[in-house]
Computed example of a mutant assay.
Amino acid sequence: MTETLLAELKARAHALGFDAFGVARADARPDLPEKLQAAIAAGWHGDMDWMEETAARRAQPEGLWPGARSIILLGLNYGPDSDPLALLEEKSRGSISVYARNRDYHDVIKGKLKELAGLLARRSGAEVKVFVDTAPLMEKPLAEAAGLGWQGKHTVLVSREFGSWLFLGAILTSAELPADDPHAESCGSCRRCLDICPTDAFPAPFQLDARRCLAYLNIEHKGPIPVEFRKAMGNRIYGCDDCLAVCPWNKFASVTREAKLAARGDLERPALADLAKLDDAGFRTLFSGSPIKRIGLARFLRNVLIAIGNSGDADLLPLAEARLANPDPLVRGAAVWAVRRLAPQRSHQLALAYLPGEGDTSVRQEWTQDL
């Protein structure tokens, strides 16, 4: 019965659009608590306090749900049609991480997972719970245990078939299912993902310090982008794909994907000039159904203004100047940096106009600190 059920589940998963399927025991990774605590003790989680607050549940699936016995891990390929690194040379356009160029992947995958979990529950009578990166579950090491791939030196799951481009989802169940063999780490001597990182965010292979990661800084971090990382940010306005895009296993990732995962044309290479003009209503409309919407307008404009400062495009200067009086200090501070980068001489005149009335300490520092 179990083998027949697994065959039915795999067939249904494929019909739903999943590209990878594997099973791991809930207790397959007893090493995770120690690794998680070491990362938190080192402060690599930055100001993502929720990682520390949920550490007890995050460390093991049984901590999240004591009834879990098996985990079905599923992967959906979202590999891009072109090299996302090429866009980094188009300084007046914004680079959005591949995963965020269309619908929020949580919404895309969750419905599919629920349908598959429902099938498992009906056939087995077991309890089920579904997760798509929205609960303290360490999907990547568990996917490694389920044989979907291995965590590469950039800490992202790597697949022989799909490279570094897999969305992951999980179904925890009380059913005892036969587990797949774990995938062996297969990076070899390659270190391309480590060498390309513009901020040296990897203390060592297989370790990531989020405090230096551009994807963390321009998505999760709520304050100003640290000055030391702004030039390295370039035109990356949401996320950073450098370490994923350079992985040599990506050459196998160009399989046909369902159309709903294809990138929206307006998010593949958006003009910074258009993005800098967005108001709250325009931002919500443009990014409706997108993960980008979750960071809010202020953080998004912060990112766009840093990119404008890095663009070298004097035509964008008026758009940066227009944000110097923005009511949000996060936006004003980024605008100051952009103006000072694009027009150092003019920024002196602007400082005389804006600095006397500036009440926010961080923005005042932007007018005077070294670039």
Rank of each mutant, 00 (worst) to 15 (best):
A42H: 10
R160D: 13
D370F: 07
D27L: 04
A117P: 00
K222V: 11
E89F: 05
A59S: 15
P329A: 09
A55P: 09
N235T: 09
R58Y: 12
R29I: 08
A343K: 08
G309N: 03
P248R: 04
A322R: 10
R346A: 14
N310K: 07
D180G: 12
A179K: 04
A215S: 15
A117W: 00
A263P: 11
V304I: 14
D107V: 13
V331K: 00
R364W: 02
R101F: 05
H183N: 07
Y105Q: 05
L74T: 03
R122K: 14
A86W: 08
L194M: 15
P270T: 10
A86V: 10
S288H: 15
L208E: 00
P33S: 10
G22I: 04
Y216L: 05
A26T: 09
E366N: 09
H106V: 08
Q349K: 08
A351I: 08
L350E: 07
L317C: 11
T155E: 03
K140D: 03
R191T: 14
L305N: 01
D49E: 13
I292K: 00
H106Q: 12
L208R: 00
S124K: 08
L244G: 01
D360M: 11
D81E: 15
D104P: 10
S70A: 13
L87C: 10
G239R: 00
P182A: 13
R294A: 14
L371I: 15
L305D: 01
D195K: 14
G169D: 08
P84M: 08
T173Y: 05
D328Y: 02
G163W: 00
K140R: 15
N250G: 07
I306H: 12
